[in-house]
Write a protein that binds this DNA or RNA. Structure first.
Length: 276
DNA sequence: AGAGGAGCCTGAGCGC
DNA sequence: TGCGCTCAGGCTCCTC
């Protein structure tokens, strides 16, 4: 499940292979993954364009083209972006191919096919709502305890669901949300408006800490995540709670429990993260 | 308007 | 061995 650290790792490993190259041809093997425009129009509008840079916002990847348009991609759960030499052929679960100048291919692969691509900009006024409404990112100056406290004060949502909302914080997914709550000692079901200012400050620090650690360790791999070189991350070795249901808490030794919060599996320590 | 839930999709892991 | 069930999860859409 690529979250901000994984998506950033993909960006870092793919950009050197695509920057400055021209999209000679594009093939869409599963048209419904192109959200906008139609697959046919997408292919015709990106073909012949040069890729000037590769960016990232939250969990979205961007290819900036020389006509001012942007390809915006979301990997969702099992999407991956891989660079391969043309001679290496098609990777498993290939869904979209960008054939680049210099004998390089860029593949969008996806097992569960939830991933999306779209093209924005130019004469076309269509916008991607999710991308447009992203909140501030971890490790940015805009994500402050004050900002979070103002929003949290107005919300009865469980804090876990609150921090997973991409319009509030961009880039957290289930893994880093659980880790942030564990590090700050907060129960995932606490209503957002029940947190004190000092708890919000701890949470804000924890979000930055776990995301920075994820980036440093090149992402977290459980099943499907791979970076642009096809390599796995290292961060799964450093997690406090995620995927550790039934194992001892690293701080106090209590057996970790799993519950559902907002439909998401949530692992926590019943002693270090009390509800009351 | 805010909050919660269904649906999308495939593979892994389980019980029988 | 093999079938069928459940679970995993980000986001959008729908309902209350």
């Amino acid at each position: 499940m690529p979250e901000m650290p994984e998506v950033e790792q993909v960006r870092k490993t793919v950009e050197p292979y695509v920057k400055g190259r021209t999209i000679i041809n594009c093939e869409v093997l599963l048209p419904r993954m192109i959200k906008h425009p139609s697959a046919e129009e997408f292919v015709s509008r990106v073909s012949g364009r040069k890729i000037e840079a590769m960016g990232r916002k939250g969990k979205y990847l961007e290819l900036l083209l020389n006509d001012g348009c942007k390809i915006i991609m979301h990997l969702r759960m099992t999407g991956a972006l891989l660079h391969r030499k043309k001679s290496e052929g098609e990777p498993p679960y290939a869904k979209v191919l960008f054939e680049l100048s210099g004998g390089e291919n860029l593949w969008f692969t996806d097992i569960r096919t939830f991933g999306t691509l779209c093209l924005v900009g130019g004469e076309d006024s269509w916008q991607d709502k999710g991308y447009l409404s992203l909140g501030p990112e971890p490790l940015s100056e805009a994500l402050t305890a004050d900002y979070l406290a103002k929003l949290a004060g107005k919300s009865k949502q469980a804090i876990k669901s609150f921090i997973l909302d991409q319009s509030k914080i961009a880039g957290l997914g289930n893994i880093y949300a659980d880790e942030s709550l564990a590090l700050s000692g907060l129960h995932p079901q606490r209503p957002a408006n029940s947190l004190s200012n000092s708890e919000i400050e701890k949470l804000c620090d924890a979000v930055n800490t776990v995301i920075a650690q994820g980036i440093k360790n090149k992402g977290t791999t459980f099943r499907d995540y791979k970076d642009g070189d096809g390599k796995q991350g290292e961060n799964q070795k450093h997690l406090l709670v995620y995927n550790r249901k039934g194992e001892p808490c690293k701080k106090c030794g209590t057996v970790l429990q799993q519950i559902k919060v907002g439909g998401r599996g949530s692992v926590f320590c019943p002693v270090c993260q009390k509800l009351k």
